[in-house]
Structures are given as structure tokens and as C-alpha cells.
């Protein structure tokens, strides 16, 4: 635990020093937000120090982003364990989503996905014919009773103790049974050769999900490699509306980058629910109902190219398939 304490403190130093004023109120000082892409290991950075003699010298300073030991994503068997004591959850505030699709782009960039591969999809939902449509971002739900893991014949996809369900592309045989078993259409398949990745194949870890391999399944991984260095998942940090919250349920805190809220209070106050609870999959993604929305759903629709808008016709105008029977 000593280690963790130290890590926390170091992280804190980094926060306060590098971010300056920007750490907690991102608005005013956002231009100063100093992003030290220090990598996952504790790295040394040169800082300018004004000495007592009045000279400016450059001093090597160890800056560690490390929040969880080890900071580098583990390879092989260890990756199946999960981060001890963590219980990752996501909360999606449907009232804030306006289909800006920045989360998708951030995710694709971060995970080096092809432009047509979306781990994260934003659906337009309408609960009943009288209902108002709303945008519905859907990541992997990282279920506690995951139907996809049950059916994997080789254990290539697995449930970890930190709630995360991952895919080991080195083991996946590509039977696609998990895609079939997932009731949320979360998983996608590498039908063709995936884009080149900077990560060498020897360093492949299920936590990073890179490099992707042809003929294997991939899906949202909750970015545990980023959590190790105290960073929020790509989608969360790229959402301009702060609609996505991520955190550790054991810590009872979720954050969207600017706000940090107690998870239990957020769920209680906003009547958080889980999508299709009746399926019994026990998801770890919670939704806050789209009440008192910040935007009309149409804004998200109008920003899309016309041919893409047609996809939603069904949802908006005639979801009356029952009548035809």
C-alpha cells in the first residue's frame, strides 16, 4: 500500500505542478493544461529551477504518471487477472449526448481502428411510438455475467476481477460465437487486415488491444492501460459534453474529466438504470435517463451527412413493425 500512496502523491505533484491552475477548473486555464505524454513508466523530465543564487538551471525531475502498479499493461496470463481492488464502471448521461461522435473518433484514434470500425456506437433510440428519440452511446457493458465469455471455446475472451471483459487476440480463433452471444452487438470482427499499428506484436497485451489481428474479434476494452497511468478512457476524455463518466466503483467516484461525482449519489439522484436489465447480464455501464436534455436530438441528426440520416428514419417515423403483423 505504501507504493500506492507514493504513486498517488507523485500523481498529485504532477497534477498540481504541471497543470498549474488547470487541474480542477479546466475552463479558465485550459490553454495552460500541460499534457506530459510521459509514457506509462515513471519518466524523467527536465524542469527549470530557479536556484537561491538566482540562476535558472535545468534539473532532471522524475515525473510518474503511475497510479497502478504495474504501470505497463501486463502481458500474457497476468492480463487475465485484472487490477486488484478496482471495479470499473461507466455512467452515461443521456441528457447530455448530442451525437457529436467525438467519443467514437477518440476511441478509433486511440485504439488505431479502421474508420469503419466502431467499438463505440451512438444509436438513436426511441422507447415507444410516442416517445421522443434520444442519442444512446453504447460501449461494451463489461457485464458481470457476460454471455460472450460463457460461449468462448478457447477462453480468448475473459472476465477480469476489475469488471473488465477483454479479448486476447493472440488466442482468439475467430469463431464469432461471442459476437452472436452478445445481446448488445458490441463486438466487431476484423474481416480484413487491420490498419498498421505502432505497437509491435511482441508487446501485445489484451489491455491495449493493439496490434489488431485479422480474423479475430475486438471490442471496447475500457482502456485499462490508461487507467494504470490515471487517465480516463479515450471516449470519456474526448466527449465535449462530459456525457461519459468513468471511475472505480470501489472508490465510489466517477469522473468525466472535469467533474468528479460520487457514483452512488449520481445513480441515486438521477435514477440511473442499466440497459435491458431483464437479460440478467449485469452490465457495468449505467445510464442516466434523458430527462431535461441539454439538446434536441435533431441537432445530432442534422450534423450528419444526409445518407447517414436515412439510417434513422425507421426509428423516428414508423417504428410500427408490429402493426404489419
Amino acid at each position: 500500500m505504501k507504493k500506492k500512496g507514493n504513486a498517488n502523491r507523485r500523481k498529485f505533484l504532477k497534477n498540481t505542478i504541471a497543470f498549474g491552475a488547470a487541474a480542477l477548473t479546466a475552463g479558465s486555464a485550459s490553454t495552460l493544461a500541460h499534457k506530459t505524454e510521459a509514457g506509462s513508466k515513471g519518466t524523467t523530465k527536465k524542469v527549470k529551477v530557479l536556484t537561491t543564487e538566482g540562476k535558472v538551471i535545468e534539473v532532471e525531475k522524475t515525473v510518474s504518471d503511475c497510479k497502478i502498479d504495474p504501470c505497463t499493461p501486463p502481458l500474457g496470463r497476468e492480463a487475465r487477472q485484472g487490477i486488484p481492488g478496482r471495479s470499473f464502471v461507466m455512467v452515461v448521461d443521456l441528457a447530455r449526448c448530442k451525437n457529436a461522435r467525438k467519443c467514437i473518433e477518440g476511441c478509433q484514434r486511440g485504439h488505431n481502428l479502421a474508420p469503419d470500425q466502431e467499438w463505440l456506437k451512438v444509436y438513436l433510440m426511441r422507447d415507444h411510438p410516442e416517445g421522443e428519440p434520444y442519442w444512446f452511446p453504447r460501449q461494451c457493458f463489461h457485464c458481470d455475467d457476460p454471455p460472450c465469455v460463457k460461449v468462448c471455446p478457447v477462453g480468448a475472451t475473459f472476465k477480469r476481477q476489475d469488471n473488465i471483459v477483454l479479448v486476447d487476440d493472440n488466442r482468439c480463433i475467430g469463431c464469432k460465437f461471442c459476437i452472436v452471444a452478445c445481446p448488445y452487438s458490441v463486438r466487431i470482427f476484423n474481416w480484413k487486415k487491420p490498419p498498421e499499428s505502432k505497437v509491435p506484436i511482441e508487446e501485445y497485451s489484451p489491455e491495449v488491444s493493439q496490434p489488431a489481428q485479422i480474423g479475430t474479434v475486438s471490442k471496447c476494452d475500457f482502456c485499462p492501460d490508461r487507467s494504470r497511468v490515471g487517465k480516463l478512457p479515450y471516449c470519456v476524455s474526448s466527449c465535449p459534453m462530459g456525457a461519459l463518466f468513468f471511475g472505480d466503483k470501489n472508490e465510489d467516484a466517477v469522473s468525466n474529466g472535469t467533474e468528479t461525482i460520487r457514483f452512488s449519489e449520481l445513480i441515486k439522484e438521477r435514477v440511473g438504470y442499466r440497459y435491458r436489465e431483464e437479460l440478467g447480464t449485469e452490465p457495468n455501464v449505467y445510464y442516466l435517463p434523458p430527462v431535461e436534455r441539454m439538446f434536441d436530438y435533431k441537432r445530432g441528426l442534422e450534423s450528419l451527412p444526409e445518407e447517414k440520416q436515412k439510417v434513422y428514419d425507421d426509428i423516428i417515423y414508423n417504428r410500427n413493425s408490429k402493426k404489419n403483423l
Binding site: 460463457k150 460461449v151 468462448c152 471455446p153 478457447v154 477462453g155 480468448a156 488466442r171 482468439c172 480463433i173 475467430g174 469463431c175 464469432k176 460465437f177 470482427f189 476484423n190 489481428q213 485479422i214 480474423g215 479475430t216 474479434v217
Partner: peptide, 29 residues
Amino acid sequence: FILFCLGRLDRIHYLLLYGRIQSPITWDV
């Protein structure tokens, strides 16, 4: 024909190597 579905035919032997008894595919095999 079920093998033609596999994305990674080169990993067929994983079915024996890492077989999970909970999967209907293992039962089928």
C-alpha cells in the same frame, strides 16, 4: 463447415489446447 467460419484456421489446435468446457462449441467438437 463450422471450421470455415473460423477467422483463424491456423489456430484450430487451440480448441484442444485451451478448450473451455462451458462453450457449446467445445461440446460440438
